[in-house]
Computed example of a mutant assay.
Amino acid sequence: MSENPDDLVVAATRALAILDVFSMEEPHLGLSDIARRVGLAKTTALRLLKTLEASHYVARTDQAQWRLGPATASLGSRYTMAFDVRESIEPALRKLSDETGEDMSFFVRDGDHRIRLVKVRCPQAQHNRARVGEAMPLDRGASGLVLLAYMGETGPLYDEIRARGYHVTVGEARQTSASVAVPVFGNRWRVAGALCIGMPASPDVAPKLHAYAPRLLQAAQSLSAMLSYDAGTARHERRPRATWHP
């Protein structure tokens, strides 16, 4: 059923129409072309372009033309990730949770924080009730440190994480929690997020987390293969160094 035109915001529909005029064949367009294609006066089109520019949805080129801005790439990545989560990540986490009897999470980076994008709770696991969408510090906890390591952070700790391929922390992000995390790679083998097993902290939990690492690395490798959309290209590109990569 189509929307009632009276319910639509005209300025928003015009701004979206402007974003739609850019294409792979014509990534850069001048003001006159944009105004003509969306059926607007140049003054109106310019006001809308400046509004979109303020939020980084469009940007100006050196040739006084316009192109899509970085915010559109971020939006596209989030849209793509929503499909990846539903189709690939959540079933993989559920399988791991069934096999290990532990809680599973998938974290992504958001600025200086990590966001729990997916969580699968094992009914038998005795652990905290962390929520999907929860923002946590990036520089504490196994998943945050793994994300930093594979996004290029320098230093002995991050060198060690990259050499080992995973990281274990106990009582770091929360005193009552312990976790082991590994990186998951996406398109062109860029870091997509971190796969994590969490459990209550205890004096003898670290060896158990290290023992889970090979299984977690294997799952991350399979997920990375599914999320790297151009597998033929990925095979010939330089992949981030980790012990489990083929």
Rank of each mutant, 00 (worst) to 15 (best):
E87G: 11
E87Y: 09
S88T: 13
I89P: 11
E90L: 13
E90P: 05
P91Q: 00
A92D: 13
L93D: 08
R94F: 11
K95L: 15
K95Q: 15
K95I: 15
L96S: 08
L96W: 11
S97G: 12
S97F: 06
D98M: 09
E99F: 14
E99D: 14
T100R: 07
G101I: 13
G101W: 11
D103W: 13
M104R: 10
M104E: 12
M104K: 12
S105T: 11
S105C: 11
F106M: 04
F106V: 06
F107S: 02
F107Q: 01
V108S: 07
V108T: 11
R109I: 01
R109L: 02
R109V: 01
D112L: 01
H113M: 03
I115Y: 05
I115A: 07
I115W: 05
I115P: 06
R116A: 12
L117D: 13
V118I: 11
V118H: 05
V118Q: 06
V120T: 09
V120Y: 06
V120A: 11
C122G: 14
C122F: 13
P123F: 06
Q124S: 14
Q124I: 14
Q124L: 15
A125E: 14
Q126T: 15
Q126I: 15
H127Y: 12
H127C: 15
A130T: 09
A130W: 07
R131P: 04
R131K: 09
G133A: 04
G133L: 06
E134T: 04
E134Q: 07
M136D: 01
P137V: 02
P137Q: 03
P137R: 03
L138P: 07
L138A: 02
D139C: 03
D139V: 02
G141Q: 04
S143V: 06
G144Q: 02
G144K: 01
V146R: 03
L147K: 01
L148A: 01
L148K: 04
Y150H: 02
Y150A: 03
G152D: 03
T154M: 13
T154V: 10
G155Y: 06
P156D: 10
P156V: 11
D159R: 15
I161W: 10
I161G: 10
A163G: 11
G165V: 10
Y166K: 10
Y166H: 14
